[in-house]
Design a protein around this nucleic acid. Structure first.
Lengths: 206, 206, 206, 206
DNA sequence: AGATAATCGAGACGGTACGTCCAGTCTTCCA
DNA sequence: TGGAAGACTGGACGTACCGTCTCGATTATCT
């Protein structure tokens, strides 16, 4: 709005990034998908984007921040907060999204990159923020569940999310096992037993 | 066994690895701890081990397998299967071990390395096998719980383990949050709700 | 003159140089002295002069002409034609000036720059003109000597100057030897033996 | 001798330089001649020599030492000490060699390079040593002249050489004037006046 | 105690990418 | 509307490691 108030040709790029920012971001993601985070090189990004290497270094100090910017500008990390009317449905939808993120042809490499660089590298910030943002976006979902009486008011959403997301990432990326049918449901049900219906298998005293 | 059938000192090294294997493994782990997986270089390992670079390449094709060998020879990835007499205690002990593995000064870098290289790199095998081995070792624990009646016979131990381990790794390594007191208990209790008490009514401190 | 005929403030700068010409010249000479010709960069000059690089490139095509302009505006290359009353005294004074030019803290780098760029670079013009100008200024000195009968009318001043200057530059800049006491006198006397007074050391038939 | 005493295939290269030293030296000189010292790049040398850039950097720290090595291995800087039977003839021959060195199609760029880098750069050592070596080689020439009685025993050969060489370099490289016929003779005669004839009366063609 | 493998070290190499500096050009804003 | 600033392409820098190769020198077992 205010940006275009004075003149249609007002500066768009200043402070924002290089003129070829979009091509650079695209090239970055393409190469991430093709080669993985470790083999992603600034040099290759520059070449594919048809841009000089120095242009990239002028705007991003290294591979990590570059990828971070590319991911933020893209929508691959966006999530879609479900609202199915009940907690179980919402969580299953969420878990399904995660499984798809982690498995997807285009998104899987991104998830892997978060593992690769996320624990110590320059990507650590991205990873932390990604999960933190997700959690913030998911809070209303849990608030609705509390309002519906499906969840105690003192339940910690972070814990539930960590359990579900952790299981999905663990299974698919670290264990490298396929997520069979019913996996996400099983995960959700494990942390969220149907109200009033004890797990059929949990008969004995625990 | 068969190897030493003829003589106690007979060909310890042939086909097994370089003479300086031990120094190489030590150097590898030291450098992993100091620099992290990405900045771990074969060249530095060779130098610190006082060995020629070619010697390392003669025995391991690259960084991943080298680190794999070093980790397998070390005991840092070993787990200690608890037997506290009840499932909850066992799982809390297990989760505590995981948290320590992931947080420890010497073991944290190893865990991070598994994330770094584990999802696609040459370390993927190590990661997969590590978690698979763990699960195998943990099976008796679950068998005891089933025998005690704490768990249904059809419960999938893998799911429980993925939930617990996933939450721990997610929280500490990806979210990069500290594991506060009570975290592991909360994780275990979340997947293992008090008997006969529907989740929705569990308002008490978890 | 003609420039200010209409108005005192009329286009002082047009065609003359950038507004910050003085700062740029100063910065150029400072950096030449600090770093030498080869490491003198337009970029550094711009930064030190507090001016954008393009401003410099608008006015001078490259490093050489820039330095040339800076030197011409400064007085470091000026010479002072001596008039001691006799040729030997004049030449010794001249040679002394050269030695000081070549050795001086502020002027030495300039002399070195003329060597560095003078033989082929963009500074070649400067170098050629510098020595040509010098020679023109020195001609009266030789004319006086001829008038005094100290020199044959057909003596080539250029040759004498080349011999003297060449020896000084050679000794100090190329051989990189100090100019000891008596050096300039020896140089002058070698090309100009005192009339009728054989060099004390030149006894034998030459 | 001792090197080949044991076996014909004994190591030839150790400590001497890269295997492709000769090709590298050739490429260096070629490029020096084609482009001049300033535009001589290690990268281009590597490419022309069919060698990787790192190979060059493994052996020489930078352009200067590389060129120095190339020049020393080549014979372009060699001089040929004349022995014509009299001092004047010897000096004229020497001065002629200098003029040819400085003017030659292949040697001129080398001389220019000595000016370019010789006064302060990494080539300074080369320049200094080149002229020092020359002088040492020329000493016998002057000794012969002294023995012949053409020169006083206390004459400083360095001074004569500086005068002659200085004049040649000055005239051709700095003044950028051609060396007309008779130039070297004039130079020599200027520092070596005809016996018994005071300078002022030397009217003849010089 | 030698013969014979296996193993190692030293030295060098081509190659990729790094991150940086600087040259010189182009585009865009501002006074 | 011309001067200045900012962004850009492009070339080279010098470095770190990669993974490979050759060749002689060591070890360690075998007979």
């Amino acid at each position: 709005m205010g940006e275009s108030s004075t003149s249609s040709s007002r500066r768009r790029t200043t402070g924002t990034g290089p003129r070829a920012a979009e091509r650079i971001h695209e090239a970055t993601l393409e190469l991430l998908i093709e080669r993985g985070y470790q083999k992603l090189t600034v040099e290759a990004v520059a070449e594919r984007a048809g841009v000089n290497k120095t242009t990239i270094y002028r705007w991003w100090p290294s591979k990590g921040p570059l990828l971070r910017a590319a991911l933020l500008r893209s929508r691959v990390l966006d999530i879609d907060i479900p609202d199915t009317g009940n907690l179980r449905g919402d969580l299953i939808a969420l878990a399904g999204q995660m499984a798809r993120l982690v498995n997807g042809e285009r998104t899987g490499p991104v998830a892997r990159a978060m593992l690769s660089g996320g624990a110590q590298d320059e990507l650590a910030l991205l990873t932390r923020d990604f999960f933190a943002d997700r959690l913030e976006q998911e809070r209303p979902l849990f608030a609705r569940a509390v309002a519906r009486g499906e969840l105690g008011a003192d339940t910690d959403p972070a814990l539930l999310v960590d359990l579900i997301a952790g299981a999905v990432w663990m299974r698919i990326l670290l264990r490298q096992l396929p997520a069979e049918d019913g996996f996400v449901e099983a995960v959700v049900d494990a942390v969220l037993p149907p109200v009033g219906v004890p797990l059929a298998s949990v008969e004995g005293p625990r």
